[in-house]
Amino acid sequence: MASTSVVLNSGTRPPSGGRVHAFLARLKRGDEIAHLITLIFAACIFALTAGLVFELWRNSALPRHQFGWHFLVTSVWDPVFDNYGAAPFIYGTIVTSALALFLAMPLGVGAAIFLAELAPKGVSNGLTFVIELLAAVPSVIFGVLGIFILVPIVRTDIEPFLHKTLGFLPLFQGPIYGVGFLAAGLVLTIMVVPFIISISREVLLAVPPEQREAALALGATKWESTWKVVVPYARTGIAGSIFLALARALGETMAVTMVIGNDPKISASLFAPGYSIAAVIANEFTEATGSLYRESLIELGLVLFVVTIIINALARLLVLTTTRRGTAHA
């Protein structure tokens, strides 16, 4: 591959004759044109994002004017009387995502520690690859598995067990359906764990080896050096991976739609059926009769968009800062 290795770097610049001249020379050679063309394509990304925001904003004018901020806190979703509130969907989205993070965080970080710190390199790479494949499984397939495998197990085993052992908590009371917040949270857990594992592992691997060596030299056990030195060092990046997982969970549509129960209610119990923003859009968008109804759904889309964008923005910054710091040290 690397056969041409003539080392000469002066002489590529045009002879100095003023900036205009240089510019003209480059223009002649097509560099500026190439630059411009690629720049236009790059700018398409802005155009796309801006267009997205604009369309969501423009097409949700009716409910924004009619309901204002109340839209976010009203819990009525009533197509008969044309009255719409987003609260049950926001609640359902948050509860299922929070549940997914609660379960996926220890699982994901634990697995990442194992893969980054303990497993031999070959094993680690192999397992990581397998786990990354899990991230590639289409969400509708998680939904099918959810309906036919997970929901029956939740109904006959998990929920009765939780009810028996932790039934004193309002979280685990009420009638057992199988579908509902818990089932949706579990499906989401499986879906986001790979993200946490693969990014956390990368972040952990970027921690400079001196950190570990120093701790071990001071007599710390392997676990102590990992938990007290390596993990804290990488914590911002790990947090970033968790935020990314959160953004993914919030926006997940198909798998959640298929197991959440599709009932716009705010219930304390995790056993209860609920609804999420993405699910209600998927179910009702094609059949929303009347402009206010449809635009309310689009405003839900806008809410989802804004929330995921903010969380994503935060996550990227967090991951960026740690991996940079890591590589800078190394």
Binding site: V76, D78, P79, V80, F81, Y177, V179, D263, Y275
Partner: peptide, 16 residues
């Protein structure tokens, strides 16, 4: 509740 193609259901699971 009233009658329509979609209503504000007092209880239940939704199926498509």
């Amino acid at each position: 509740v009233g009658s329509n193609t979609s209503v504000n259901w007092p209880v239940g699971l939704g199926g498509k």
